[in-house]
Amino acid sequence: MDVFMKGLSKAKEGVVAAAEKTKQGVAEAAGKTKEGVLYVGSKTKEGVVHGVATVAEKTKEQVTNVGGAVVTGVTAVAQKTVEGAGSIAAATGFVKKDQLGKNEEGAPQEGILEDMPVDPDNEAYEMPSEEGYQDYEPEA
């Protein structure tokens, strides 16, 4: 019985440690998101679009440190934060509304985080759909 109880105690310690790591990862992701939003706020009209992409990228980098179902929630929060940063930029006159959601080359930025393969159960990952990809044929 002692062996059984000791095993359960060790398992509990492992769960607590994993929860603490997840909590730490979420806190880091939130900190990076805040950094990115402050970065966007300090940019001029020309830099705002690039700044919004930076927020998304920093958040995406930190999301990889967070495991399990938390990833889905962090990704949703990050996307809403990026959308909010863009709205703030438009409201303050840093950028025109028609410039939001495009990178410096004018290509749409939507789907940055949505296409990231995420499995809350950590069982399997699927690649994003290939609808947006084109076949590449090298020139002879």
Rank of each mutant, 00 (worst) to 15 (best):
A11L: 07
V63I: 09
T33M: 15
A89D: 05
V49A: 15
E83F: 10
S129C: 05
E130K: 06
V3Y: 03
P117R: 04
G73L: 15
A30S: 02
M127E: 13
P120F: 07
E46P: 03
V40R: 02
D2G: 01
K6I: 08
G51H: 01
K23D: 00
A140K: 15
V70L: 15
E13H: 10
G86E: 13
G93N: 07
A53T: 01
M127I: 11
V40D: 00
E20D: 06
K96C: 08
G132I: 10
Q99W: 08
E131T: 09
G111Q: 00
P117Y: 04
V49Q: 13
E28Y: 07
L113G: 10
Q79H: 02
V40W: 00
V48R: 03
F94E: 07
Y39A: 02
F4H: 00
D135S: 11
E110C: 09
P138H: 07
A124T: 14
G73Y: 01
M5C: 00
E35A: 06
E110P: 03
A27Q: 10
V118K: 12
G68R: 15
K34Q: 03
P138A: 08
K96H: 06
V70R: 02
E130D: 05
V52G: 01
G73H: 11
G67P: 05
P117L: 06
P120W: 11
G47V: 03
A90C: 14
E20Q: 10
F4C: 04
Q62H: 07
P128R: 10
A17G: 07
K97D: 13
T72K: 06
G36H: 15
P108C: 07
Q62A: 10
E110H: 04
K58S: 09
K43Y: 14
G47D: 04
S129V: 00
S129H: 10
T92H: 04
S129L: 15
T92P: 03
T75D: 07
Y39C: 05
I88M: 08
E20V: 06
T33N: 02
A91D: 08
E35I: 15
Q134I: 14
K80T: 06
T92L: 08
A27P: 00
Q99R: 00
K102F: 00
V49C: 08
G86A: 15
K43V: 14
Q134H: 03
D135H: 12
K97P: 13
G47N: 13
A124V: 12
K12N: 01
E130V: 02
E35C: 15
A85H: 02
T81F: 01
K60H: 10
A85Q: 05
T44W: 15
L100R: 01
D98M: 09
G101T: 07
K23M: 15
E126K: 12
A17W: 14
A30Q: 02
A91F: 15
V40E: 00
E20A: 08
G41M: 10
T44V: 07
Y136V: 11
S9W: 15
K12F: 07
T33D: 00
M127L: 08
V66D: 02
G7V: 14
V48L: 10
G132R: 04
Y133C: 14
V15H: 01
F4P: 00
A69P: 04
G25D: 07
Q109I: 09
T72W: 04
E137Q: 07
G86S: 13
E131K: 07
G14F: 06
V66M: 14
K97I: 15
P138Y: 13
A78R: 08
D2R: 05
I112H: 10
E83P: 10
A124G: 10
V15F: 04
E104A: 07
A124W: 06
E35W: 12
E110R: 04
A56F: 15
K34D: 00
K21E: 01
V118G: 08
V16C: 07
L38A: 10
A56H: 12
T81C: 12
K6T: 03
G41F: 12
P117A: 05
E104G: 09
D98A: 13
A89E: 04
V48I: 14
A76F: 02
D121P: 10
T59G: 05
A85E: 06
K32F: 13
H50V: 10
V66F: 13
T44A: 10
V37L: 12
E123I: 13
A76D: 07
G41H: 02
V71W: 11
P108Q: 10
V118E: 03
E83Q: 06
A78N: 05
Q99P: 08
K6C: 05
V40T: 03
A17D: 05
A18C: 06
P117H: 04
D135M: 09
Y133R: 06
D98T: 06
V70D: 05
E57Y: 01
A107L: 10
E139F: 14
I88V: 08
H50D: 07
E123H: 02
E13T: 11
P108D: 10
P128I: 08
K97H: 12
S42K: 13
E104C: 00
Y133P: 15
A85V: 10
G106I: 05
A11I: 15
P120R: 08
K10Q: 06
E110Q: 10
E137M: 12
D121H: 12
Q134K: 15
G67K: 13
G84A: 02
V3D: 03
A90W: 15
Q24C: 13
A107S: 03
A29M: 04
G86C: 14
D119Y: 14
Y39F: 14
A11H: 02
G25F: 14
S87N: 01
A89G: 08
V16H: 10
E110I: 06
V82R: 07
E46M: 09
E110M: 10
V3N: 09
T81Y: 03
V118R: 04
M5R: 03
E83K: 06
P120E: 07
A53R: 09
G132M: 13
V49Y: 09
A17E: 10
T64R: 08
A19T: 04
E35F: 13
V16E: 04
Q62N: 05
S129M: 11
V74C: 14
V40S: 00
E110K: 02
Y133K: 04
A76T: 13
E137V: 14
A11S: 01
A78I: 15
G132H: 06
V15K: 01
E13Q: 14
E114A: 12
A27K: 15
A29K: 04
K43L: 13
Q109F: 02
F94I: 12
L8Q: 00
V71N: 04
E123Q: 05
P117W: 03
A91E: 13
V3S: 04
